[in-house]
Design a protein around this nucleic acid. Structure first.
Length: 686
DNA sequence: CGTAACGTCTCT
DNA sequence: AGAGACGTTACG
């Protein structure tokens, strides 16, 4: 209490935005905090928000006003973007002052805007003064980092309040207080504590054996940069040569040209672990290996972006989480052909691991509980700034961003990561979400907070998390930030279109039950652990918390085109829900579903089933309850072009052949077309 | 004024 | 470091 803080007024507490998906939810009634609430029969001591309702974009309170002019935010009064900005209230994360940028005669470019949190920046004054936080420890970790990550933490410490509180405590002889605060450092010390996320404790040293670039000298580092730069220029030349023939332009579609092997191949069940996948992992900030992980000291703490807003209260793992984390650790369901060793000498991959994953432990310890409840991750810009590449000379490189991006789109994920090391600008550009439409983290032992924020930054349309031990909390966190505006989620999110969760546990996948997915086209739940009918019911049934006005409730994934349920032990009750709530399915994988029988097929192909008209591809391999009879039923599927009946013990090859033959005779009208079946019917194998 | 819950404190 | 407690703030 030695001093009142020099700048800013009393700190304004942030409050719910009331617009994000989380805010729109109703309380789950099941989480730790809900159970504490009086309304749910608890003592009401914890006074925390429901875990599923934690706001992803907390705003300044309505009563907040400009420190200088005393007015509220006035961005609504103008149209132009920049003007809106100068008239909005901006809160400085360092001095806490809330001002209209206009009142301090500043514009967007003058401060460091924290895009994770509305109305939040490091004000020009603090920026100029080189302040970067209130404590030196902090400073090291929260600067804008080399790779362009802006690691601004959410810190809402209110020093005046603290002081106030302290004095209050002193006066009252606070009951809870323990007498151990050395008077001298009380003030500053408390500051340090704000946000327990401040565990920026010394970063672990790299293990002795680690070499690679970590021990590179500054000189060779520069040289390396130069080499890469040259390489890129050569590459550009090549691209220019070839570009005349190929119509590039749309980078989205071009991602395939980089040899992406994402989930479309059937994702999780494929045992292959290609280098490309690893490259992507690496690109997300992970080294290619499952096991490795050196940490090292670095100027950047990626942690920043995954910091808790307030540090501590929120992030708690409920027992379910623990269970979840635990269970996958045991690796109970490893897919066949799991990669054993790690590729050696993946320098590029290492580089990334080093720059982005400072907070990972030295040893791949069992997955840590998630601490991301309130972590806010900067939404990806449509096209990362800046527009051009500044050179040391002071001028800009002749090639503008678009040209560079045209080059980048030809790079593998691994190479993109390498490029991210070249300079800050490249680092940003390489995070362009158009370069990252698919992200594959399958078979990662642990999904870490940095990986999660890496995903959010890149906003993939396709996300493969199969055979990982992702926890429910993590998945919920992701979902909240990957859903598009159509869902009323993070408004900047484009909307996840394909999600692969095969081999995960139901406990984790149940996170899907907390949201709706209007954009979702493919959902892969194959070989999910511990799935019961009741679970699928929860997932497939329309959300119960529909708004009062809503009469018609829709399923969570009304636009799903492909659903993979292989290896799950559900009954026709669930299948009925599939028919009802995912009415547009064209592709359905029911292979190795022990309960699927002729009756199931009847359900799918009944006159009342919309799937009868939409299904084009059905995988029923390994469904041993199916008999020859189901083939008659399957003829009802007008659009069927592919049917997999391998390993169906009770289906005779003869019936199969007959089915194929007959299909050829009903060339038009109701039956499947001759060509398609002949080509694609997978006959019972020998 | 009552309810929700943010942010920080203490305890283990 | 995590969990729980609680003063305090935001808001209807």
């Amino acid at each position: 209490m030695s001093s009142s803080k020099g700048v800013g007024g009393a700190r304004r507490r942030r409050t719910r935005c009331r617009k994000c998906l989380a805010c729109m939810r109703t309380e789950c009634g099941e989480c730790h905090f809900c159970k504490d609430m009086k309304k749910f029969g608890g003592p009401g001591r914890m006074k925390q928000s429901c875990l599923t309702r934690q706001c992803t974009a907390p705003v300044l309170p309505h009563t907040a006003v400009c420190h200088l002019c005393g007015d509220a935010g006035k961005e609504d009064t103008v149209e132009a973007e920049e003007e809106k900005f100068t008239l909005s209230l901006m809160e400085c994360t360092i001095c806490n002052e809330i001002v209209h940028p206009r009142c301090i005669k500043m514009g967007r470019a003058d401060g460091i805007i924290n895009e994770e949190i509305p109305n939040c920046w490091e004000c020009p004054k603090c920026k100029q003064e080189g302040k970067s936080g209130k404590d030196p420890i902090d400073a090291s970790g929260k600067r804008r980092a080399d790779n362009g990550e802006e690691a601004v933490r959410w810190k809402l410490t209110d020093e005046p309040v603290q002081n106030k509180k302290k004095s209050l405590d002193d006066a009252q002889g606070h009951k809870r207080k323990k007498e151990k605060d050395p008077p001298a450092d009380t003030g500053p010390k408390k500051k340090f504590k704000d946000g327990k996320d401040r565990h920026l404790k010394k970063k672990p040293k790299p293990p002795q054996g680690e070499t690679e670039l970590v021990v590179q000298s500054e000189k060779s580092h520069q040289r390396e940069k130069l080499e890469r730069f040259k390489l890129m220029c050569q590459m550009l030349e090549r691209v220019k040569d070839s570009s005349s023939s190929s119509s590039s332009s749309d980078s989205d579609s071009d991602t395939d040209s980089r040899g992406s092997d994402a989930s479309s191949d059937g994702g999780g069940s494929s045992p292959a672990t290609s280098p490309t996948r690893e490259q992507r992992l690496a690109a997300l900030g992970f080294s290619a290996s499952d096991e490795d992980e050196e940490e090292d000291d670095d100027e950047e703490s990626h942690n920043g972006s995954s910091d808790a807003r307030n540090g501590k209260t929120k992030p708690r793992m409920n027992s379910q989480e623990k269970e979840n984390n635990h269970h996958t650790t045991k690796g109970a369901k490893q897919p066949p052909g799991r990669k054993a060793g790690r590729p050696a000498g993946q320098v590029g991959l290492r580089i990334v691991a080093r720059t982005q994953f400072l907070n990972r432990p030295l040893v791949p310890s069992p997955p840590k509980p998630m601490q991301m409840e309130r972590h806010l991750v900067k939404p990806p810009p449509d096209s990362p700034e800046p527009d051009s590449l500044p050179l040391d000379s002071g001028s800009d490189h002749v090639m503008q961003r678009d040209v560079w991006l045209a080059v980048f789109q030809y790079l593998s994920y691994r190479d993109l990561c390498v490029c991210m090391r070249v300079c800050k600008t490249w680092s940003r550009w390489c995070c362009d979400k158009r370069l990252w439409t698919q992200i594959d983290l399958s078979r990662r032992k642990s999904i870490t907070p940095p990986m999660l924020s890496g995903i959010i930054r890149r906003q993939p349309a396709t996300l493969d998390l199969s055979w990982t031990n992702i926890s429910k909390k993590q998945l919920m966190w992701l979902i909240n930030r990957l859903q598009g505006r159509t869902a009323g989620h993070a408004p900047w999110a484009a909307g996840l279109k394909e999600l692969v969760l095969s081999g995960c546990s139901w406990v984790s996948a149940s996170a899907l039950c907390t949201a709706s997915f209007p954009c979702m086209r493919l959902l892969d739940l194959r070989w999910l652990e511990d799935v019961k009918d009741s679970h699928l019911r929860e997932l497939l049934s329309p959300p119960t918390d529909t708004k009062p006005g809503q009469t018609e409730s829709r399923g969570r994934m009304p636009n799903l085109l492909e659903l993979r349920l292989a290896g799950l032990d559900f009954t026709d009750a669930s299948l009925r829900l599939v028919v009802r709530h995912t009415p547009q399915l064209t592709t359905l994988d029911l292979s190795h579903c022990s309960q699927v029988g002729d009756q199931s097929i009847h359900l799918l192909t009944a006159a009342s089933s919309p799937l009868r008209e939409t299904l084009a591809d059905i995988n029923l391999s390994g469904c041993n309850r199916l008999t020859d009879q189901c083939l008659q039923l399957l003829k009802r599927c007008a659009r069927l072009t592919r049917l997999d009946l391998r390993a169906c013990r009770q289906i005779s090859p003869e019936a199969c052949q007959r089915f194929a033959d007959e299909s050829t005779t009903v060339a038009s009208g109701s039956g499947p077309s001759f060509k398609c079946l002949e080509e694609k019917l997978l006959l019972k194998d020998s």
